[in-house]
């Protein structure tokens, strides 16, 4: 809880700083809509990786899954002329299978999550570049209707010129379901327990393998959903770099939001706030003239490092205080 308050404080601080430093450009509806849309899209994939991180694992393949689904969907629709429902079903099925395979390899063959998903990162992008012939994929001027689930704005009553970006609906649904799952169901408790001590969880009669597999399936499914929404949003996906580094943004957001890579810790609210902070930082770098855009990674890296350092320092001080009592 304290962690969430801390990160929320940083978010508010960065927002105010950006408003001031950008001469108010930050508050223009166009900028806000964009920012919120990006936050919603990245929030979905960050929640996915959050589940994996809570089990003490990692998923590096998210960006490549986004590439595979994001390029594959328009490819099936426009190049092969598949009907939309079937193409969407294929996207879900493939994402699910990817997660299932990751989970099985990690639990049954006892491979390390880092290695399994690193190979996934390489393979899914390579496969996508293969079947698309490395050609840019998009919907052209078609599928405007379905694309509105990513591009539309939902008008607010009494507010002129600003609407809530449609992906927010997805984020809210995903976040609420994920939050209930993690905190109110026995399976969420199992995930938190096994993330802290898989052995103790197993000795308590929990089917830990099944829970870990479930976490990877959730992660890949949400990455797949992210892929669909991202490509509908931008309408143009280049297999060579679509979704590049997105797994790192997602992991960073989860870590900023209070997930520990050691496992067992994390909240959905924290992850969403962490995502928002990441996106506001990127936005700030673009809007504020004194910060050159090409040092974006350096700024984000420094903020994350500072965040985790502060967290550890707070813990250290707290444990000293307990010890000296």
């Amino acid at each position: 809880m304290k962690k969430i308050v801390g990160i929320l404080g940083i978010l508010i601080f960065v927002v105010i700083a950006t408003i001031v430093l950008s001469d108010g450009i930050f508050l223009r509806p166009f900028n806000l809509e964009n920012l919120i849309r990006r936050t919603a899209l990245f929030g979905i994939i960050s929640i996915g990786v959050g589940f994996v991180i809570i089990t003490g694992g990692i998923d590096l393949s998210i960006g490549s899954v986004i590439c595979l689904i994001g390029c594959g969907l328009p490819w099936l629709l426009t190049v092969h002329g598949w009907p939309l429902p079937i193409a969407l079903f294929a996207a879900v099925l493939i994402s699910l299978l990817i997660g299932l395979i990751h989970g099985l390899l990690i639990t049954k063959l006892k491979l390390q999550p880092f290695v399994v998903t690193l190979c996934g990162l390489l393979m899914y992008r390579g496969v996508t570049r293969g079947f698309t012939g490395d050609q840019t994929q998009g919907f052209g001027s078609e599928f405007k209707g379905i694309r509105s689930i990513a591009t539309a704005e939902i008008p607010l009553p009494f507010v002129e010129g600003f609407g809530v970006p449609a992906p927010c609906v997805f984020l809210v649904v995903v976040a609420v379901v994920a939050g209930i799952f993690l905190n109110q169901t026995i399976y969420g408790r199992y995930l938190l327990a096994l993330g802290r001590s898989e052995e103790a969880a197993r000795y308590s009669g929990i089917n830990t393998d099944r829970m870990v597999i479930l976490a990877y399936v959730i992660c890949s499914l949400l990455a797949g959903l992210g892929g669909v929404l991202f490509v509908m949003d931008v309408n143009s996906a280049q297999p060579v770099d679509f979704g590049n580094f997105y797994e790192l943004y997602a992991i960073a957001a989860a870590v900023l939001g209070g997930c520990s890579l050691r496992g067992g810790h994390g909240t959905i609210v924290g992850i969403v706030i962490g995502t928002a902070l990441m996106q506001v930082l990127r936005n700030m770098i673009t809007l504020v003239d004194v910060i050159p855009t090409h040092i974006e990674f350096a700024v984000i890296g420094a903020v994350i490092l500072g965040g985790v350092m502060a967290d550890e320092l707070v813990k250290l001080v707290a444990s000293r205080r307990v010890a000296s009592k």
């Binding site: 026995i186 408790r189 327990a193 001590s197 052995e199 103790a200 000795y203 067992g264």
Partner: peptide, 21 residues
């Protein structure tokens, strides 16, 4: 400490781990 308990969880959540199901 390794097999019997999840040290970083509260007593209540440790007590209920086997009975949750």
């Amino acid at each position: 400490k390794q097999q019997g308990l999840i040290l970083d969880m509260p007593i209540r959540e440790n007590m209920s781990l086997a009975t949750l199901l």
